[in-house]
Structure formats: structure tokens, C-alpha cells
């Protein structure tokens, strides 16, 4: 077993663009669930919309900043449309509606009727929309090796996308840190505890929930952009499992904490990589084929999610005394 290679792969996950993207998505979900108590089961829908918004407007010739704004605007409108019918209803309806809405986005995106815009189920090729982002890199062409990590400077799965991705994560953490300590965050916390009480104190609960839903969704859209920059926009890789991974990450790190989502994402992807690399190297093909190792990894994720929510709902960083899940 080549431990050197395995550990390098695992360490690479610590700062991979995907890890950053999922951390960002989990930060968005943290604003929904951790801060406000909204059960958004459609975070992948926000991410997919962000990815489509960014890629399609870039392909249409829009500059980088405009494409990012389009992505964020798509998520904001999506949040608004979802919020209007559901934010006045009980929590599980929001869960059902968000999961359904994310599926609608994916089903429409992969529909052959929109092949010319979304590329249907094959999606949009990375090279069609990566150029504005790559051109914005100050590093130019070529590769750069840092220790065992050798990535291109600007193209595709690059140092540039890592730097931008983690900078976005840092900014989002700062935002959450500021908000959690502000009176705004206090109102959200109150809503999480008992929204009728907050309403009786003269706060417009509906408006706060809407703000939280849209803000978290917009962060999800940016996560979607980061996620697709090193690859392609593929609607089927951004379906329900993606939302569930984001949930696992959030609960793993700790909801209602600032760094929980980041820690959760790093641990999630690094341990998944460790499990899969070790099994690939150590389990002979006759016992488990490569794709079975892949599936085994996801089974582990599912079981982890179950065990986490039952035995340690506050996650690694969370405070048991103020755990985010309604214990009623």
C-alpha cells in the first residue's frame, strides 16, 4: 500500500476546491438551519442555479462579475419563490417543498427541451465558461508545485480556484461571525427557538426568515460556482445526494457555529478520500470493485449522518446546551 500517495491525496482534500465549495454551501445552510431553524432540503438547487446562472451568462459573453451577479440573483429569486408559500408553514413542509423545488430545477435543467441553453443531461462543458475566471487570474499559465501538490496556476483545477474558493469561505465565515453576534442574529436565534414569541415582540418573523433563506441561498449559489469551476455543470451530479452531503457536513462540524461547516467539509472529504484510497489499495478487485468502493464510501456517509443526528446533533464544535435542533 502506497501510504505516501494516499496521505498526499487525503491532504490534498484539505484545501481542494470541492471542499471549499461544500464548506461554502454548508455555511449557507448554517444560516438557514443553524441560525434560523429552517429545514432547507434543497441547497443543491441553489447551487445548481448558481452554477447555471454563472455558466450560461458567461457563455452568453457576459463578464465575470456580471455572471457572478446573475448566479446570486438566480438564487435570490429562487429563495423568494420558495419562501413565499412555505415560510408561514410548519418546518417539514419547507423541507418537502425545497427538496421538490431543487428537483424541479434539476429536471428542467436536464430536459432535452432546453438542450441549447443548459446542455440537457450532459450539461455544460467546463471549457465553455471557465475562460473569464481563468483570465482573471494574476498568475498566468503553467504549473506550480508546492510540496507534493502540483496544480496548474490558473486553468481548471488550479491554485487560482483554490485561492478564490477559500477566500470566499473566509469571507462567508466573517459574515456569519458578524451576524451571529449582532441583534439581527439574535432575532434569528429567537425565531429558531419560538417564532410566535418573537412575533409577539414586534419582529416581522416572515421577513427575517426570508432574509435568512435568501442570504443562505446566495452563498449556496457562490458555492455552486466554485464547485463547477474545476469541472462541468452537470445537473445529475447536483441532485439530492449533494444536499444530503451538505447536511452531513453541517451536522458533522456543528450547526450554529462559525467554523463548524468548514471543519465539517474538511473532515468529510478527507475521511472519505482516506476510506476510499485505503480500500482501493488494500481490497482486491475480486472482493470489491472500484465502483463498489465508491458506493461503500457513500453508505458510510449515510450511516454517519444517522449516527450524528441521533448521538451528537451538536456536531464537533457545537454546544450541547444550545443545539440547533428542535427537541420538542
Amino acid at each position: 500500500m502506497d501510504w505516501n500517495n494516499i496521505l498526499t491525496n487525503v491532504a490534498g482534500e484539505f484545501f481542494a476546491p470541492t471542499t471549499a465549495a461544500y464548506a461554502l454551501a454548508a455555511i449557507g445552510l448554517n444560516i438557514h438551519f443553524g441560525l434560523t431553524g429552517l429545514i432547507n432540503m434543497g441547497q443543491a438547487g441553489f447551487m445548481l442555479l448558481g452554477a447555471y446562472g454563472f455558466a450560461i451568462s458567461t457563455i452568453a459573453g457576459w463578464p465575470l462579475w456580471a455572471a457572478v451577479l446573475v448566479a446570486i440573483a438566480c438564487a435570490a429569486v429562487f429563495g423568494l419563490i420558495l419562501g413565499i408559500p412555505t415560510l408561514k408553514l410548519r418546518g417539514d413542509y419547507l423541507a418537502i417543498v425545497t427538496i421538490a423545488a431543487a428537483e424541479i430545477v434539476r429536471l428542467i435543467g436536464r430536459s432535452t427541451a432546453l438542450t441549447e441553453i443548459t446542455g440537457a443531461s450532459s450539461g455544460l462543458r467546463g471549457n465553455d465558461y471557465k475562460h473569464t475566471f481563468q483570465d482573471s487570474s494574476p498568475f498566468g499559465d503553467g504549473n506550480f508545485q508546492l510540496g507534493p501538490f502540483d496544480y496548474s496556476l490558473s486553468a481548471s483545477n488550479s491554485w487560482w480556484v483554490r485561492i478564490v474558493g477559500w477566500a470566499a469561505v473566509g469571507l462567508a465565515c466573517l459574515l456569519v461571525w458578524l451576524l451571529i453576534r449582532s441583534p439581527w442574529g439574535r432575532v434569528l436565534k429567537g425565531i429558531r427557538e419560538d417564532e410566535d414569541a418573537v412575533r409577539s415582540l414586534g419582529k416581522n418573523v416572515y421577513s427575517y426568515k426570508m432574509q435568512a433563506l435568501i442570504l443562505g441561498g446566495c452563498i449556496g449559489a457562490v458555492a455552486g460556482i466554485i464547485y463547477v469551476l474545476p469541472r462541468a455543470v452537470q445537473p445529475d451530479s447536483m441532485g439530492r445526494p449533494m444536499t444530503f452531503f451538505v447536511w452531513t457536513i453541517l451536522l458533522l462540524g456543528g450547526a450554529a457555529t462559525v467554523f463548524g461547516p468548514v471543519l465539517g467539509s474538511i473532515i468529510f472529504w478527507a475521511s472519505l478520500m482516506l476510506i476510499k484510497s485505503v480500500m482501493r489499495a488494500g481490497v482486491p478487485d475480486s472482493i470489491m470493485r472500484t465502483e463498489q468502493i465508491e458506493q461503500f464510501g457513500w453508505i458510510v456517509v449515510g450511516v454517519t449522518l444517522m449516527l450524528l443526528i441521533i448521538f451528537r446533533p451538536q456536531g464537533i464544535l457545537g454546544d450541547k446546551k444550545e443545539l440547533a435542533i428542535d427537541v420538542r
Binding site: E291, Q295, V301, L308, V327
Partner: peptide, 30 residues
């Protein structure tokens, strides 16, 4: 019996669904 809330239980069902789906895939392929 542990008085785990229904919201928590709902998330457990999501984990279970994920685990079962990939278990089926594990044995019967995609």
C-alpha cells in the same frame, strides 16, 4: 423512547435513505 424529535428523526430517515440506496447499488449495480 429517547424522545428524539420528529425533525431529528426526519434527518435520520435521510441518512437511512442514502445508506440504503448505495447499499442496493453496491450489490446490484447502477
Amino acid at each position: 423512547r429517547r424522545r428524539v424529535g420528529t425533525t431529528q428523526q426526519m434527518i435520520v430517515t435521510i441518512g437511512l435513505s442514502m445508506a440504503l440506496q448505495y447499499t442496493y447499488q453496491f450489490f446490484f449495480g447502477g
